[in-house]
Amino acid sequence: MTFRFTVLTTASALALSVSAAQAETDWPTRTINVIIGAGPGGDTDFNTRTMARYFEQITGGSMVVTNMPGGGATIATSAVKDADPDGYTMLFGHTGHLIVTEVSGLADYGIDDFEICCIPGIDQGAVFVASAQSGITSIDELVARTDAEPQSVVFGTEFGGYSHLQGTIFQQETGADMRVVDTGSASDKIAALLGGRIDVGGIAYGAIQDYHTAGQMVVLGQPNETRNELLGDIPTFAEQGVDFVMNNPYIIAFPKGTDPEIVAKMEDIMRQITEIPEYAADLEQGFKQPVSFLAHDAAMERLNAIRDTYMPFREVLQSAR
């Protein structure tokens, strides 16, 4: 009788183990909370909500997007890092949120403290723009003005964030001595440009396209290795003699300890999404963004290389805080 009890107990444990494995494979079985460290309407919010719509189309599951702006995205990333690793809390961010914040000292954690799933896209829609009131219409004019009057050009950014690093690297490459001020989020930066409170900023083209068309802003260049033709006739910095290439991969990540099967399944779902023609059309229409995707291994290689490139600017970013 004892032996029979042991066999039954073992069989029951095995059944429970199989049932648990099936539950993991069946993910998602309830709504996933996707947290982003940005407000509504920007490029990160747009990419997240577009992904969520196609995720639901493929899986039949549901996602709710939670905006947690502020603190250079550390409010959002901390919420995900400290969440239960059950697969139902996910971060959709970018290198500004998980690498630049570590470099700048805004966060004491980075990509190694999460389960990185994949790079679901690469922002190739970033541009440098000048306000119409500034009178600056080219990189040469910007550099010439700062040569004649150092600190006379105001560059708006979010201290410790991605655009802060953009401005820092740009100044290093050109020698342009700009006055860097903290303006806050992308929407705040747009308002400051329109109001003439700042002269130059780095921002997603999709967010300022209408202002560019209306003549309220002047696009100075795109920091891509080759032109993103979806942006129209906008030259790269390299075409203008400036060695300034800076793409911003998006990142899907889960709390450390999330089941690898769940992470791998999300990676495969994201790959499927990028193969849908309508998804590509949505990215082009929304933020002039071509489709990109890097699976886990390639994503980690890319992200670690970016971290190594940014780390030498640690002291500059931290001293500005």
Results as ranks from 00 to 15, higher is better:
152 S>F: 05
66 T>W: 04
161 G>Y: 05
229 E>P: 05
245 V>G: 02
162 Y>K: 14
116 I>W: 08
122 I>G: 05
116 I>S: 07
4 R>Q: 10
10 T>A: 15
85 P>I: 13
244 F>W: 10
111 I>H: 07
118 C>E: 13
90 M>A: 11
50 T>N: 12
149 E>H: 09
127 V>K: 02
236 T>A: 12
152 S>V: 02
26 D>N: 13
70 G>W: 09
95 T>M: 06
74 T>Y: 01
31 T>W: 00
206 G>Y: 05
32 I>H: 02
291 V>Q: 12
308 D>K: 14
211 Y>S: 12
121 G>R: 01
5 F>D: 14
123 D>R: 09
314 R>L: 02
18 V>M: 05
254 F>I: 10
181 V>C: 04
128 F>W: 06
89 T>G: 02
174 T>M: 11
310 Y>W: 07
234 I>E: 09
298 A>W: 03
79 A>G: 03
175 G>T: 10
229 E>V: 10
226 T>L: 02
147 D>K: 14
21 A>K: 00
77 T>E: 08
61 G>R: 06
149 E>Y: 04
282 D>Q: 11
292 S>C: 12
177 D>G: 02
54 Y>A: 07
69 P>G: 08
81 K>D: 06
295 A>R: 12
310 Y>P: 06
44 T>P: 09
193 L>Q: 11
63 M>L: 15
257 G>L: 05
241 G>V: 09
115 E>S: 13
97 H>R: 07
212 H>F: 11
159 F>I: 15
315 E>V: 13
125 G>Q: 03
244 F>L: 03
102 E>M: 10
267 E>Q: 14
262 I>K: 11
12 S>T: 10
110 G>I: 05
313 F>V: 09
286 G>P: 00
258 T>C: 05
102 E>I: 08
6 T>R: 14
270 M>N: 09
286 G>C: 03
187 S>Y: 04
236 T>D: 13
61 G>P: 07
15 A>Y: 01
277 P>I: 09
32 I>P: 02
143 V>G: 01
15 A>K: 00
78 S>T: 15
145 R>T: 13
172 Q>C: 02
149 E>M: 01
86 D>Y: 12
